[in-house]
Design a protein around this nucleic acid. Structure first.
Lengths: 344, 344
DNA sequence: GTCATCGTTGCAAGCGATTGCACCGTCGCT
DNA sequence: AGCGACGGTGCAATCGCTTGCAACGATGAC
């Protein structure tokens, strides 16, 4: 016996499908006699009926599905974001499609196409680049979207992102207070807003604190190996650095490796600050000092924002900046040799 | 202008929707004149047409959606599994629904219900318990399912799981070779197949190697805190242990903490072996010796198996055992004081 | 020249739900 | 007693697509 349809329930209850449909929906069950509602619901539960949301969606032009694209769920930074989004969406009866894009344009487009074909009600995009043709194409068209973690230069799109400038200020300030004066930056990819803003924030912070412009090298990717590569360059060009702030935790890890390769230990010979405070970064050797981004909150806020945009599509697109927080652990300490001038 | 339907394409190409439908589908476009096919496809791409898979799904009774349930995507063990599954499914045109269950019966049922309502073509379940009423209800009914990582005692359900016995053998053998003779086990929850099988595997391995039955305590959950709790008990009851094998990496972490609480360092005073080799476990302090499970492969195989079962629903349910591999790192070393007898 | 065949296309039913509208009996009011 | 209002229910269209079957003209065989 196949899975029961509404028609079966209606027949079992001795009513028309229209009545059954109304009886089963809380908001419309008032138009049906209480006794009938009861009879229909009884029949439905007896038969183990579940609505076919595909059919309902077709009629209502609403799928109650949200598509979410992340570069790589395997990067520990993303799962909490996904989790936050999923928790929020589940509360409102939505289900989440997940796709990994690997920062690959082809994959991105394929996933977006698949999701649009499946009539998602909205899109959560965590893989935007600063000039992202795909995002441009999508905006204002079919489904509402909100950007997560990264945004685009042109703005005009709803987004929930970390306050990268503030975060960098926190990091540089911390090092400065410890007495560091020669601080470098291993930046993230230049085509991401996070990479660009953190680099700008680093320069800005140095400037505000009266430090000379610190050297900077960009990592090809927000990943350990790429970070190590970039850090090698930075450290060999600037052997006098006493501290480095990295554009994210993975790059910080690579930086520590690069330092060790050249015989410098962290934190004794080089202080390193990460960004994100992704899970388990406190268990590393050394435990990483980093700028915490509340990932779960970002996911949740992004989902909320998307839901509100689905309700009200003409809402003006807002960007929500999430405040970061410094977490001091073992990878930073005052420099061994004090800088030329006396510490402040 | 709203998103175009097949009807719009058909009109633009001057044909009937039926013809357009056929022209757009590779496998049926042979029944349409080549020139017509061309005309239809041109019109479709001009209009930016995408099929509405909701409508198609309703007609075909096939959604090309797979639902996947994990206890918690935030646990680094799961993302690679999800990734493997997603990669495999995407290749075949399927999309993945993701749900977190937190080992909470209510959440599990709600997610399963939501997925069934959305007409998923199959289910990937990574949260089964040894006697799992939900799994029992599901088997043989609506959607084909395959269990991932954990299975149920009664069997009769397709599953892709690690070879827990072999893994435990590897772990105990390694410690034995290093000279350990008093080895304990911090087991996983007794209601999971992984917890039970690893505990059994531990006992079996000890026995095979001629060791006395090692003491064992069960952790409430596969998590760090619960693991610490259990390890405290184990270590205080058995102060003479020189090594512990944990039921997974998180529990191993908790065990190291518990040891340190009581003034014992790892690996100097206590060797600890984990299980899973989840990401970043090599970066911990100390880097964890563990039994590697190829998570990505498990996800991929599970998805493959599910797909094949969708094609052929009457296939006899098979259990696929994935071979583990020992990864020796810094958390194990020979015991400081050799055991009473001379090492073998 | 006729008829069967084949290639190509159109017709229409149907997938499972929702919903505006019509219908109908009952009730209350005048 | 007659009438309108209203509560409860049924009817039928509709969402966008697929597909078995029918239709139709051209072709080839006899």
């Amino acid at each position: 016996m196949r899975t029961p349809r509404l028609k079966d329930v209606a027949e079992a209850a001795g009513v028309h499908v229209a009545t059954a449909s109304r009886a089963l929906d809380d908001s419309r069950s008032t138009m049906v006699r209480a006794e009938t509602v009861e009879r229909v619901r009884q029949a439905a539960s007896d038969l183990g009926y579940r609505v076919n949301r595909m059919a309902r969606g077709l009629k209502l032009n609403r799928s109650f599905i949200i598509g979410m694209l992340v570069p790589d769920i395997t990067n520990p930074f993303f799962p909490p974001i996904v989790r936050g989004a999923e928790d929020c969406l589940a509360e409102s009866g939505y289900t989440l499609f997940l796709g990994n894009t690997d920062n690959d344009d082809g994959k991105e487009r394929r996933h977006v196409a698949a999701m649009l074909e499946r009539q998602v009600d909205g899109l959560l995009l965590a893989m935007a680049r600063r000039r992202d043709p795909l995002v441009e194409e999508l905006r204002g068209r079919q489904a509402p979207l909100v950007l997560v973690n990264r945004t685009i230069d042109r703005g005009g799109v709803a987004a929930v992102i970390p306050d990268d400038h503030a975060g960098m200020m926190l990091a540089v300030e911390h090092l400065h207070q410890q007495g560091h004066r020669r601080i470098g930056h291993v930046g993230g990819p230049a085509d991401t807003s996070t990479g660009a803003r953190r680099a700008a924030g680093f320069a800005e912070a140095s400037n505000l604190l009266g430090l000379p412009a610190g050297p900077m090298v960009r990592s090809e990717a927000f990943a350990e190996i790429a970070g190590r590569e970039a850090a090698r360059t930075l450290l060999s060009r600037n052997p006098d650095l006493t501290a480095v702030v990295a554009a994210n935790d993975l790059i910080a890890l690579g930086t520590i490796e690069a330092a060790e390769e050249s015989g410098r230990r962290c934190p004794e010979d080089l202080s390193v600050v990460g960004f994100n405070d992704m899970p388990f970064v406190d268990r590393f050797r050394p435990p990483l000092t980093t700028v915490r981004i509340p990932e779960y909150e970002i996911g949740r806020r992004a989902a909320q924002l998307l839901l509100s945009r689905i309700e009200n599509p003409d809402q003006h697109p807002e960007t929500i900046l999430i405040a970061p927080e410094l977490v001091v652990r073992g990878s930073t300490r005052p420099p061994r040799l004090p800088p030329s001038g006396p510490p402040v």
